[in-house]
């Protein structure tokens, strides 16, 4: 047995150094050298201070902002230190109640909006940190945001279009709107 023990321990030790230290440190070094902005969290900096990450959503519940997708993180939504989905099953009553509450909130903030509510706007994302909503979910909110800011719908639509991404190469993924970027751009308008 002892003749097998030495290779077991030595190979484990050496591969640990190689794959557990050399590999991640080397990748960290190269990442920091070639892609420092991405490697450090794609932060948006305003006046020298980070106001968020392009990749991580933030909670919005005021009428003058586009609302992000519902988030199931605890203890408050969009807690980027503890990602989580709701894990509610499709037939769970709690899911139906949660979706109904969100529908009511959207309708109360914009009574008489004739559009149907897109499903992604009232369902919790997988990460609880989804930075995007679908273009349809943005369309639904344009009227409310424009009214509460005293802007025209066309002006708001233009900003939304600026932060809307299509499918990659026209094929991969889904079209989407970055909520944080749109809201920052809205706030920057005089």
């Amino acid at each position: 047995m002892r003749i097998y023990l030495r290779p077991a321990l030595v190979v484990l030790g050496l591969l640990t150094v190689l794959t557990g230290l050399v590999y991640p440190l080397m990748v960290t070094g190269m990442a920091q050298l070639f892609f420092p902005w991405q490697a450090n969290g794609s932060l948006i900096v305003r006046d020298g201070k980070p106001v968020g990450s392009v990749l991580i959503g933030q909670p919005f519940d005021a009428p003058q902002y586009f609302w992000s997708r519902p988030s199931a993180t605890s203890p408050f939504p969009y807690n980027a230190a503890a990602s989580a989905g709701s894990n509610l099953g499709p037939t769970n009553e709690a899911l139906v109640e949660a979706v109904q509450t969100r529908i009511d909130a959207l309708k109360a903030a914009d009574p008489g909006n004739p559009k149907p509510i897109p499903v992604d706007l009232v369902t919790a994302s997988a990460s609880g940190l989804d930075p995007h909503i679908s273009p349809a979910a943005a369309d639904y909110q344009v009227r409310r945001v424009a009214r509460s800011r005293g802007m025209s719908e066309a002006q708001v639509r233009q900003i939304v279009a600026q932060y809307t991404q299509g499918r990659r190469f026209g094929i991969l993924g889904e079209p989407r709107v970055n909520v944080l970027e749109v809201n920052l751009a809205l706030d920057a308008k005089p």
Binding site: R69, G85, S86, N87, L88, P90, T91, L95, V96, V99, Q100, I103, P116, I117, P118, V119, D120, V122, T123, A124, S125, A126, S127, D130, H132, I133, S134, P135, A136, A137, D139, G173, E174, P175, R176
Partner: peptide, 29 residues
């Protein structure tokens, strides 16, 4: 089907992925 009962739009189009989006990310649909 419960979402349809609540009046939500789950149809796939060029403006949204649609379908059962609970627990899914927008960029992946």
């Amino acid at each position: 089907p419960t979402f349809t009962g609540l009046g939500l739009d789950q149809t796939a189009s060029h403006r949204q992925a649609g379908g059962n989006m609970e627990g899914k990310e927008t960029r992946f649909g």
